[in-house]
Write a protein that binds this DNA or RNA. Structure first.
Lengths: 225, 225, 225, 225
DNA sequence: CATGAATGAGGATTCATTCAT
DNA sequence: GATGAATGAATCCTCATTCAT
């Protein structure tokens, strides 16, 4: 329910009509994400955002209190798309290994779709004052939690070694992010599909127990064959 | 020999005395890295840099043509400390697996020492115009090359699986960087030593052949025992 | 119709309301002409212009893209007052000699009214980049053309000798300008009226044919008597 | 004796050796005239002047107290070349009409030789504070005096009409200056020789008495024939 | 005498933010 | 609610001038 673009998150609007707030923020954020991603936060002016959103500069300040607020909203919209996609990809899957694979795949796919925005999140989170940055981190932790849960399930099922879940989660998350962060180079080495495949293979070797391995290979055969 | 802080790299100074240029640039860059790391590039004024370096604002422009030049120099100084430390850590080691371990360890150690600066590099490379960014990327590629070489040696020696070297290199590099990028969270989970240890264990599982494993365990025992 | 102060001339404003643009530019230019004339272009700051115009410094940049643009606009406003006054003075006159006299007189009168501004035009045209200077020169050529036409008419009517029209036009134009350029000295020798009278007498001797002379004297008598 | 480049004129040097002062100022002024003429006073930095003169920036301040001092010296050096050339051209001539012609010719020739510098004088005299500008004006008045004297002699000899000498002198002087000021256009109409010839013809018609005319024609024939 | 590195005040320009319409 | 003109603080950069060597 707070996944709608323009959801509130402590950012106060001066306009009361909630539906309007949501719609306007949606416009604003979409433009902001695009511009911030390409030109960076500081190189983008509020006028730029207003122009691209097809509204006046003044209007923005009725839905946001700061330029930094726009950044916050923009970053949250990115992070929330992560939080959205992963559960959607797991829908209906119950096997731990399948869920693990699906989660990684989904994460990489969103990152690929919002590549520029992902880079933006890395670049610009620090541009936020501490309290607003907190919100971003909470959001990231929440997403990580979903990955971590998949991992924990695999371990609990004896399919993976008993590794430090949170540390490995960072490896997995970072793997997804890297597709965006290092895209300038990776795109010359392989496509998204191969990237994910090689990654999963790597993680399989790193994590699976013999039992896990057997299932993993069975899964692979049933997919291929 | 162009690793000295303040090395030239296309950035032209108006002062001819080379020793002075090196010294002054050293001062300027040190202050810049510190300030940029904490406040970000755009929030830091040239006056800030000058004040912290104990020089006048005007002086900076005798050693640099732009504020962006200061950023370039700052980033290069970070990347060059990587390029410096890794070979130093490999000095005298000939065993591929030892070299591999030492390289990862060294990389993580530099990142730890220059944690803020590493974050800076992630945040601010995009603030540079394309041509200057090129220099940064070249530098990064070079560092990656050193890791990749260690990896390739292990594979060639039959100690590791025949993986896609460059892709895995990115995993390794990213692992080191993450210590800085996610330090706000990781520091609550473990110290650098444990981080590296768990990482190496993870990579060992992911990469080693049976032959590699035997040697790896022997190494571990000789270190521990 | 493009004689209004603030007429557009390739100088782009960021404000769309045309009437406002005209009004604001009028304010800005008036202040700029005054200040530039007294202190020179380089000694005058945009803040000075803003203060005198009763607006903020930032506002100026919504109507002008450069400080040089302000100069361009200022110079054009001066040159356009020339282009305006001369035809106005010739209105209703059909006799070539009368038109000639009226044109010179009008020119000298405008120069006298905008003495400082005329000096400004001489001093500062070269401070403009080539392309903008072009605009100034075009404007000057146009004004000269009006004087030249009067001269040519007199020649065609057999009232003046067949001299090189453009060269002599420069003499006439220069004569008018000199009243401003050398005012520091001329004002001690005579008033504007006498300056014009002596000038016309000089040019009459230099240019009139016997036929021209007869008419010239008749004109003088009818004016005096 | 104060025609030497670098003559003192109230401008105090910190160096005592007079010969050296003269030499150094010569170097400095030559570079300054060149640079100021092309780029204008404000666009030229002291460093520019120093570089072109092949000296250090600091050195200039040992021979001059101000950047404005450099301008003053530069302008004086131009005006003094006028004061120099005219008497030189009159040397040995005693006939008033010949002297008149020679003076105009000489003036135009110097202006032609130092065209850029002449424009500089027009542009930049106002950039000087009042007291230093005084020096320039005195110098100009002195030069005008030489032209005025030639004119007065012609009148006294009954060769020219009894016009207001100083006013007409301004016409003559202005005629010479115009060759520089309007050179961008005039050069397309004629060369210096023709410019002078047409000018002299114009002035002849404007000024000569019948007696003067007869001699003027005789002079022309003897030159031509 | 000469050098040229260092200073720091000064000014053009940008842009987040406000507010009258 | 929306607009966009106006503000003015903030910052980069230049350059005349000084002074230690």
């Amino acid at each position: 329910m707070d996944n709608k673009p323009g959801a509130v998150h402590d950012v106060k609007a001066q306009v009361s009509d909630e539906a309007l707030v949501t719609r306007r923020r949606g416009q604003i954020i979409a433009s902001a994400v695009e511009l911030f991603s390409h030109q960076g936060f500081y190189r983008t002016t509020i006028q730029d955002v207003a122009r691209k959103a097809g509204v006046s500069a003044g209007l923005i300040y009725q839905y946001v209190s700061d330029k930094e607020d726009v950044l916050l909203l923009a970053l949250l919209s990115v992070l929330e798309s992560y939080k959205h996609e992963i559960p959607a990809a797991l829908e209906g899957l119950s096997d731990p290994l399948e869920r693990f694979q699906a989660a990684i795949r989904a994460y990489c796919r969103v990152v690929d779709q919002r590549r520029e925005a992902t880079v933006l999140a890395y670049r610009s989170t620090k541009s936020l004052p501490d309290d607003r940055r907190r919100l971003i981190k909470d959001c990231e932790i929440e997403t990580n939690g979903m990955i971590a849960a998949c991992l924990a399930d695999c371990i609990r099922a004896g399919l993976m070694r008993d590794v430090n879940v949170e540390l490995v989660t960072y490896q997995l998350v970072t793997f997804a992010h890297s597709w965006a962060l290092k895209h300038w180079r990776l795109k010359e080495l392989c496509g998204l599909e191969q990237y994910v495949a090689e990654g999963l293979d790597f993680f399989a070797h790193a994590l699976l127990t013999p039992k896990g391995w057997r299932q993993w290979k069975r899964m692979a055969e049933s997919t291929t064959g």
